[in-house]
Amino acid sequence: MSRTRHRSPTDWGWQLVAGGLALLFGLPLYWLFTSSLRPAGSPPPRTVEWFPHAATLTNYQRIFALAPFGHYLLNSLIVASLAVPLTLLTASLAGFAMARAPVPIQRSLLLFSVTLLLIPTAALWLPRYILFARLGLLDTWLPLLAPTLMGSNALYVLLFYWSFRRISPELFDAARLEGSSTFGLWWRIGMPLVRPTSLVVLILSFLAYWNDFLTPFLYLKSESRYLLPVGISLLHQMDTTQFPLLLAGAVIMTLPALVLFWAVQHTFWYEGRFSELAHTDEV
């Protein structure tokens, strides 16, 4: 505690290592942005190029001129803006009901949810594909939106369950005495108190739907319904001098995810109860 405030050599060493690693992890993104600024059609570089010579933003205009790109973007936005609210609705309802259920039922629902978590659902695409084909739902957005029925991910349901459980039961009992229905308790008492959880689920589910390649790739056939990831992967058979154009598309697809993450990343670093006392400079 009597430690001096100025930087010790080990601190400088730490900064160097941590900074170097941060740079390394940032490098792919840096190359993505700078390479997307290369004029399309210009010959590929022959030597290391930290910033393109005639840097230009024209790729960002031209990618939209490639007719369907704007359409894919719109489709992706529509699917995400349907999927996220639906996920919030079903996951919070299920989480709420779990938290308010009698203890034995709570336990079995918890076990059920953890079991669901342990099943790698991405590996279930083959039987799901056959089910959707039998139901005549291929080439619609319904297979893409179907997981919202179960809150998209058992993890989201569990997050809501844990948050609702922390609310003191007296609050609900009081509202109940004033004649509130169970749905009223969920909407008027529960939901306002779990806003941080809703925000986390909103962001995680947006990222999941926005980033997903496999599901739209498997279930959609007509180009008019394609989402951005599938659309861009199709454009990628272009010749190499056009690659910067494609990277501009990749930047546009990455930006919403990046902005969302950096806007809320401070909530990720929950440091527990002892964080204020945490050793600051010692090894």
């Binding site: 941590a18 993104l29 990831p229 990749a250």
Partner: peptide, 25 residues
């Protein structure tokens, strides 16, 4: 430490990049 949150966020960043964009990069 100074800057630790920034470094953590930098480490996490590649994880939020969509698969297709990541493959193209």
């Amino acid at each position: 430490r100074r800057g630790v949150r920034f470094y953590r966020a930098a480490i996490y960043t590649p994880t939020v990049i969509p698969d297709v964009a990541y493959a193209l990069i």
